[in-house]
Simulated scan of single mutants.
Amino acid sequence: MNERRLTMMRIIDSRKKFTARELAERFNVSVRTIQRDLDYLQQIGFPLYSEQGAHGGYRALENRILPPLQLTRSEALGLFLMLEILEKVPDFPFDAIRSHLAVQYYGSLPSDVQTNIDQMRSHISIRMIQLYEPAPWTTEILEAAITKQQIRIAYRSANGEKEHNLYPFGIYFENGYWYMPARNEDKVLLFRVDRIQNVERTGPVDLEVPSLAEWGQTPDNRETAEVLLRFSSFGARLAKDDPIFHTVTDDHWSGQVPLEEFPFTARKLIRFGPDVQVLSPPRLRDAVLQLLRDSIDQYKE
Rank of each mutant, 00 (worst) to 15 (best):
M1T: 08
N2T: 11
R4G: 01
L6G: 05
L6M: 15
T7Q: 12
R10P: 03
A20L: 00
E22F: 01
A24T: 01
N28M: 00
V29Q: 04
V29S: 04
Q35R: 12
D37F: 11
D39R: 08
Q43S: 09
Q43G: 15
G45P: 08
P47C: 05
L48Q: 07
L48I: 04
A54L: 04
H55Q: 11
G56T: 03
G57D: 06
Y58I: 07
E62M: 08
L66T: 09
P67M: 09
P67K: 08
L69P: 02
L71M: 08
M82N: 08
E84Y: 06
F92H: 09
P93D: 03
P93F: 11
H100S: 02
V103H: 12
L109N: 14
Q114E: 14
I117A: 07
Q119M: 13
R121A: 09
I126D: 05
I129T: 15
I129E: 00
Q130F: 01
A135R: 03
I141W: 07
T147C: 05
T147W: 00
K148L: 07
K148S: 15
I151C: 05
Y155M: 10
S157H: 02
N159W: 14
E161C: 12
L166R: 07
G170L: 04
E174W: 13
N175C: 08
M180D: 01
K187C: 05
V188R: 11
D194S: 12
V199K: 03
L207C: 05
V209P: 05
V209G: 07
A213F: 15
E214Q: 15
N221A: 06
A225Q: 13
R230D: 09
S232Q: 14
S232P: 15
S233N: 13
S233W: 06
A236W: 02
R237D: 11
A239E: 06
A239Y: 02
K240V: 11
K240C: 07
D241R: 15
V248F: 13
V248N: 07
T249Y: 15
W253A: 00
S254Y: 01
F264H: 11
R267P: 07
K268F: 01
I270W: 03
I270N: 09
F272I: 08
D275V: 01
Q277S: 05
L284E: 12
L291G: 05
L291Q: 10
R293I: 03
Y299F: 08
Y299G: 03
K300Y: 04
